[in-house]
Every structure is written in C-alpha cells, then in structure tokens.
C-alpha cells in the first residue's frame, strides 16, 4: 500500500514538473487561449491537467515575462485571453526542451534493460 502511494506521488510530481514546459510547448506554434491550451495538453500529452492549475500557472508565466497576453473577441461573442510566447519565453522553452532531450536520452540508456524486463 505504502509502496504504491509513493509510486503515485512520484508520478504526480513527475507530471507536475513537466507542466510548465508542456504549456510553453503548446504555445510554440502560435498564440492560444486557456481552454485551447488545456485541450491540446489533454490530446497530445500524457499529463493529467487540472483546469484550476493551468490558469494560475499561465498568469505566473506572464508575470515572469515568458508569455504575453491579448484580448480577442471570439465568434461566440465574449472576449478570450490569448497567450503567446515572448522572446524570453521562446528561449526558456528551447532551453528546457534541450535539457529534457539530454535527460531523457541518458535515462533511456540506463532504463533500457529494465524495459526489456531483465
């Protein structure tokens, strides 16, 4: 029981740690608004994203100067807040992606025998 709890916590932390990078990555191709970002993450990532986490995180990324925002009136008639990467945000995302790639390839080599089940 304890062991599986620890496993769950580890997995939750792993996912949470990736969320910031995932959001920056979702904005890489161009501007997007909250719900669109959430759907993108649900579709393209294995992250279990809580809506109540993404909006405050977006506002933090904005305060840090990694994204900027603008209001655009939607077809539905109400305004939507669109986010886009700033120059600093692009640099940060690229840096994080490089770190990720390096980390994952070295872990991959280490974990290869485990995946084969030997």
């Amino acid at each position: 029981m304890h062991e599986s709890d620890a496993e769950d916590k580890w997995e939750v932390q792993l996912r949470k740690g990736c969320l910031e990078l995932a959001i920056l990555a979702a904005l890489w191709e161009g501007r997007s608004y909250g719900l669109e970002i959430l759907r993108r993450l649900e579709r393209d990532s294995d992250l279990i994203v809580s809506e109540g986490t993404v909006y405050p995180l977006l506002s933090r990324l904005k305060a840090l100067g990694l994204v900027r925002s603008e209001w655009v009136t939607s077809d539905a008639g109400h305004p939507r807040k669109y986010y886009a990467l700033t120059v600093a945000g692009k640099q940060r995302a690229a840096e994080m992606a490089r770190t990720w790639a390096r980390f994952s390839s070295s872990m991959g080599a280490l974990l290869a025998p485990l995946a084969k089940g030997k």
């Binding site: 109540g52 506002s59 305060a63």
Partner: peptide, 24 residues
Amino acid sequence: AQLGSPDKLAREYLTDSLLARAEV
C-alpha cells in the same frame, strides 16, 4: 466543479503571483 472551489483557485493564484512577483 472541474475548475475547483473558488477558495482553492484563489489560493493558487495568490501563491503563484507571490512567487512570480518575489522572483522578479
């Protein structure tokens, strides 16, 4: 329900904005 309670959401915004402001 999917957004969570307003109190929880407010706490999230406040700590996130505190962290961001403090870091800046």
